[in-house]
Design a protein around this nucleic acid. Structure first.
Length: 444
DNA sequence: TCTGGGGTCCTAGGACCC
DNA sequence: TCTGGGGTCCTAGGACCC
């Protein structure tokens, strides 16, 4: 917790719905609901006009239609949201180099790095008022709610106090008095399950939470969560604003209007998802070692199966093959409601450290004297034509590991001597046994 | 009223190594 | 021969957030 209110939180009001109302004047002043419009859709964002009818996010769209039949029901136009979000984030980064986006419509800004005369409540309030006006300008009329405080926790709570179009600066020293009468559910991280656990020990408000010892909280909600609740109840929060956070996983999932049983259909759907995931990996220049399949059955029970490859991949056929094999471990006979594919364990795709660690002082397998090395790895030499175009390797590699219908190959690369480790489907047509007569790498 | 899609973080158990 | 503790990696599930 800082001595001065230098952490600012911005939250754009009913963001998706507000963008729709901005772009379609006929929707202004009317209830708008953005979300899934299919039979199993849920509400993403409801405009304030729709909220007056009791519509809110995460509500099934069918229920929203019942409550507010006259609303406009729209599927999201994420391109427009992303573009508007970019404009806001750019504005924020002009204010301070330390901006931490939490989603398309929310961010923390570290005002300690901004150009302010001083950090008094008066100065910070004037600054925030000006910021809100600029948000309106760069978004073409959207409003945002702003909270400022001595920590992320307080700034976030503050932005929620006066929505929409709000502005609240919490003066240093007032944090605990502000929190005490509030329900514990205002604390980020306290959802339905934690709230129920706390209710069972007689805790409903932050004031009551303050009375519980750290040991007791750890016993009730677990080590990590318990400790952080103990601190947050006392408004103690030292988390810094972090500008750059690297992605840890990439995934795609779809809920179907009706449950699917046909295994060939499921396999085909999985293939398509593998294609989408790897396309996104490749665009981000990422690859990952762990493939996860997610299955939600007819009874809404959710199951995941994952497999970690010897090396990272960004290859659609490989991900598809592993995913299909993982799906085989789940009993889908009752019907599948949702299917998903994800890749995690993401790596920068040059794997020099991995190789250095696992083969400390081995003979270079590209030497003349490599027979034993290749035999120990097993295996068989391979040549993968085309890989050089795709992945910037020479196109010759050798087997590093195998399993689940996947072989992991280490390729020689032009720029980095240790080479790149890449996992490919065993039946990938690009992957052929090495034979000097027919498949010498096309080297110039 | 039957419950999205994109993520993050945590927990717990087992394998394996030192 | 018996016992062990710590660290790391992997897997499955769950809570939570927007």
């Amino acid at each position: 917790m800082r001595a001065e209110p230098t952490i600012l939180h911005v939250d754009l009001d009913a963001f998706f719905a507000a963008v729709e109302q901005r772009d379609k004047p006929s929707l202004r002043g009317k209830p708008v609901v953005v979300g899934g419009v299919g039979g199993r859709g849920v509400v993403s964002t409801a405009s304030y006009e729709a909220r007056a009818f009791g519509v809110h996010s995460a509500m099934p769209t069918a229920e929203a239609r019942r409550r507010c039949p006259n609303a406009a029901f729209l599927t999201g136009r994420f391109h427009a949201y992303r573009e508007t979000s970019r404009a806001v984030m750019a504005l924020l980064r002009g204010i301070s180099p330390l901006v931490e986006p939490l989603s398309l419509d929310e961010a923390f800004v570290d005002l300690a790095e901004a150009d302010l005369p001083d950090h008094s409540v008066t100065a910070v309030s004037a600054f925030a008022r000006d910021l809100k006006a600029r948000v309106r300008e760069v978004t073409g009329g959207l409003t945002g709610s702003v909270g400022v405080g001595t920590s992320k926790f307080i700034a976030k709570i503050a932005s929620d106090l006066d929505k929409p179009d709000g502005l609240v600066v919490v003066a240093p020293g007032n944090e605990r008095d502000l929190l005490r009468p509030m329900q514990v559910t205002v604390i980020p991280g306290v959802g339905p399950a934690t709230a129920e656990s706390l209710r069972r020990i007689g805790v409903h408000t932050v004031a009551e939470l303050e009375q519980i010892s750290e040991d007791e909280l750890v016993r009730v909600v677990g080590r990590s969560h318990g400790r952080s609740l103990y601190l947050l109840a006392r408004a103690q929060d030292d988390r810094p604003v972090v500008a750059e956070r690297e992605a840890k996983s990439v995934s795609v999932e779809d809920t179907y209007d009706t449950d699917h049983v046909d295994r060939r259909l499921l396999a085909a759907l999985l293939d398509r998802q593998a294609g989408k995931v790897t396309e996104r990996l490749q665009k981000a220049r990422l690859s990952g070692r762990t493939v996860t399949v997610k299955v939600r059955l007819h009874d809404f029970s959710t199951h995941t199966r994952s497999a970690t490859l010897p090396g990272p991949t960004d290859d659609a056929r490989t991900v598809a093959r592993v995913a299909r094999s993982l799906l085989g471990d789940v009993d889908t006979s009752g019907g599948v409601r949702l299917l998903g594919v994800g890749v995690s364990g993401l790596a920068d795709w040059i794997q020099d450290d991995l190789f250095a660690d696992q083969e400390p002082d081995e003979t270079d397998p590209f030497d003349e004297e490599t027979e034993t090395v290749l035999a120990r790895l097993s295996h068989r030499r391979v040549w993968a034509p085309g890989m050089d175009v795709e992945h910037d390797v020479h196109g010759r590699g050798w087997v590093w590991g195998a399993g689940r219908g996947v072989v992991t190959v280490r390729f020689e690369t032009a720029d980095t001597p240790p080479g790149r480790v890449l996992s490919l489907a065993a039946d990938d047509p690009e992957l052929r046994p090495y034979s000097p007569q027919v498949s010498e790498p096309p080297e110039g």
